[in-house]
C-alpha cells in the first residue's frame, strides 16, 4: 500500500475549510456546556427537592442517550415543529445539552471535593451562603475541575464529527465527500485522524498549561 501524499496536499485546503467549522463548533459547544453545566449544577445542588430531582433526571436522560440520536432528534424534530434549525445549530444544541449534563457532574465533584471545614470557616466569618460559594468553594473547586474538564473537552472535539450526519460541512463531512469522489479512502481518513489528533494535542497541552497556571502556589 502506497500513500499518495500529493493527493493529501492537494486536498489540504478542503480539510482546513472543514477544520475551521470543527473548531468553531468545538469552541462554541465547550463554552455553552461550561455555562449550561453551571445552571444544571446549581439546580442539582439546590435546596429545593423538586429542582434537584429534575436536574438529576435531566442528567440521567442526556447521559443515557447517544448524542447522535439527540442531534438527529433536534435536527429533524425542529423541522417537524415548523422551526427548522440549521445542522450547525442543532448540533451545537445537542452537544450543549449532553455535555452540560456531564459538566454539571464534574462541577459537583469539584464542589464536593472542597471540605465542609472550608465552608464552615467561611460561614464563621459571617459569609452568606452564596459568598461562601463564590469566595471559598468555587475558586478551589475550579482548580480540581480542570483535569476532568480537559477530558470532556477532548471528547467534545471528537464528537463534533457526528454533525457530519446532519450535513454540517466540518472536517469529517468533507472527508466523506472526498472519499465518495476519489476513492482515496486511506489517505483521506488518515489525514482526518491526524488533524483530530493535532487539534486535541494542542488543546490538551494548553489545558495542562492552564492547570499549572491556576495551581495553588506552595
Amino acid at each position: 500500500m502506497k500513500l499518495d501524499f500529493n493527493f493529501i496536499l492537494r486536498n489540504l485546503p478542503t480539510f482546513l475549510e472543514g477544520a475551521v467549522v470543527t473548531l468553531e463548533l468545538s469552541a462554541l459547544a465547550i463554552l455553552c456546556s461550561l455555562v449550561w453545566g453551571l445552571v444544571v449544577v446549581t439546580a442539582r445542588t439546590a435546596p429545593s427537592r423538586a429542582l434537584a430531582l429534575a436536574a438529576t433526571g435531566y442528567i440521567e436522560l442526556v447521559r443515557n442517550t447517544p448524542v447522535l440520536v439527540q442531534m438527529l432528534f433536534i435536527y429533524f424534530g425542529s423541522a417537524v415543529l415548523g422551526a427548522p434549525l440549521s445542522g450547525f445549530a442543532a448540533g451545537l444544541l445537542a452537544m450543549t445539552l449532553q455535555n452540560g449534563g456531564y459538566m454539571a457532574e464534574i462541577y459537583r465533584a469539584g464542589i464536593e471535593a472542597v471540605s465542609q471545614r472550608q465552608v464552615e470557616a467561611g460561614m464563621a466569618l459571617g459569609m452568606r451562603r452564596h459568598e461562601v460559594m463564590s469566595i471559598v468553594v468555587l475558586p478551589q473547586a475550579i482548580r480540581k475541575v480542570v483535569p476532568p474538564f480537559t477530558n470532556q473537552a477532548i471528547v467534545m472535539i471528537k464528537d463534533t464529527s457526528l454533525v457530519s450526519s446532519i450535513s454540517v460541512a466540518e472536517m469529517t463531512f468533507h472527508a466523506k465527500l472526498l472519499t465518495d469522489r476519489t476513492a482515496a479512502a486511506y489517505e483521506v481518513f488518515l489525514t482526518l485522524a491526524a488533524l483530530y489528533l493535532a487539534i486535541n494535542a494542542i488543546v490538551s497541552a494548553a489545558l495542562r498549561l492552564l492547570e499549572r497556571r491556576v495551581a495553588i502556589p506552595t
Partner: peptide
Amino acid sequence: RSQVGMVFQSFNLFP
C-alpha cells in the same frame, strides 16, 4: 456570625 470569631482545631485557612 460576623460578630463572633471562631478558631478551629484544624486551622481551616483558605489554601
